[in-house]
């Protein structure tokens, strides 16, 4: 049996596959990971299918064991501290957890919000409408991962093999840097005047502590619209920078509603959504407008990074005992 026992899980820890897609037109929130890059990387480190369900660990971390014997798993926890017994592990790692060992993932000084833990073949759970993504607000999906839970891998046949090394992944940083998020203006950029566009680009903004999987509220310069903040509802994409009546923008994230009635001055590009998702409250950043072509090129570069991570793997060695 390949099982993972949760000794301690903070709030906002859930199972997530790539999302419950195909039901936006029926008002269903897709959910899925906050940081799609780390989610995909966790699955790739275990050679899982891309849509395998992964534990998305909230900001306070997770402690777990493998009570039934050695368990192969992958952790992608940028900015977190990851320890297995006395071993300090890098934030992106494929490892074997022996019976009796504890894996401890906790907030680190570098700061990250969401960590991902993958099991061989994915975490087993009954799909709801074709997906193992959890949306707590509507009650769709497997639900939260809580202290005391025991989780099963889909593919017990790929349990830990003798002599399989622990491997850490060190990825080189990508431009433009963590203090700048790129966005494509629209779909309602024309409802904002030059002052609001300038304020958005000057910043600085920071994620407010009043944020969750649905939306990241931002603190920073307000963005008044020219003729009010009510529009007839239209669709909402993940990353939409939406501005309600008080002018304080918020960015719609994985648990967003499919439609809404506030104007959206821009949309954070997909390549930079993981950076935004991992920003701790209070860390300053600014927005940079880019073209669709630049956004697509950045997405391609990020996909290439996912596809070609292998050369960046390093075998980890630890002192015995």
């Amino acid at each position: 049996m390949t099982v993972l026992h949760i000794l301690q899980a903070g709030p906002a820890t859930t199972l997530q596959d790539r999302g419950r897609h195909g039901f936006l037109r029926f008002g269903v929130t897709p959910a899925g990971p906050m940081d799609w890059f780390s989610h995909q990387l966790a699955n790739r480190l275990l050679e899982n299918p891309p849509d395998a369900a992964v534990i998305e660990i909230g900001p306070t971390g997770l402690i777990c064991t493998a009570p039934a014997g050695p368990l192969r798993l992958a952790v992608v926890a940028p900015g977190f501290s990851v320890e297995r017994g006395k071993d300090r592990l890098p934030g992106r790692v494929a490892l074997t957890l022996q019976k009796g060992q504890r894996l401890i993932i906790r907030p680190g000084p570098a700061g990250g919000m969401w960590a991902y833990l993958a099991l061989p073949g994915g975490v087993d759970a009954p799909p709801v409408m074709g997906s193992r993504a959890t949306h707590l607000r509507s009650g769709l999906g497997p639900g939260p991962v809580q202290t005391g839970d025991t989780l099963q891998a889909v593919d017990p046949g790929r349990a830990a093999q003798e002599g399989q090394p622990d491997q850490g992944l060190i990825l080189p940083p990508l431009p433009p840097g963590p203090d700048a998020l790129r966005y494509v203006p629209g779909p309602q950029d024309d409802l904002f005047g030059p002052d609001s566009h300038a304020a958005l680009q000057a910043g600085p903004y920071a994620v407010s502590p009043r944020s969750d999987r649905m939306a990241y509220r931002l603190t920073g310069p307000p963005l008044p619209a020219l003729a009010g903040h009510d529009i007839v509802s239209d669709g909402i994409a993940m990353g939409a920078i939406q501005v309600p009546g008080d002018g304080q923008p918020f960015v719609l994230m994985a648990d967003r509603q499919p439609t809404g009635g506030y104007p959206k001055i821009g949309t954070v590009i997909r390549a930079d959504l993981p950076i935004l998702a991992q920003l701790r409250p209070g860390v300053p950043f600014r927005f940079i407008p880019v073209t669709i072509d630049a956004a697509v090129a950045a997405l391609q570069a990020t996909q290439d990074r996912l596809a070609h991570f292998a050369p960046h793997l390093r075998r980890l060695r630890f002192a015995a005992g």
Partner: peptide, 16 residues
């Protein structure tokens, strides 16, 4: 209207 590089809005008007 673009809603990022992965969503496009075809807008027929602004009222109900």
């Amino acid at each position: 209207r673009d809603a990022g590089e992965a969503a496009l809005v075809v807008e027929f008007g602004t009222v109900i």
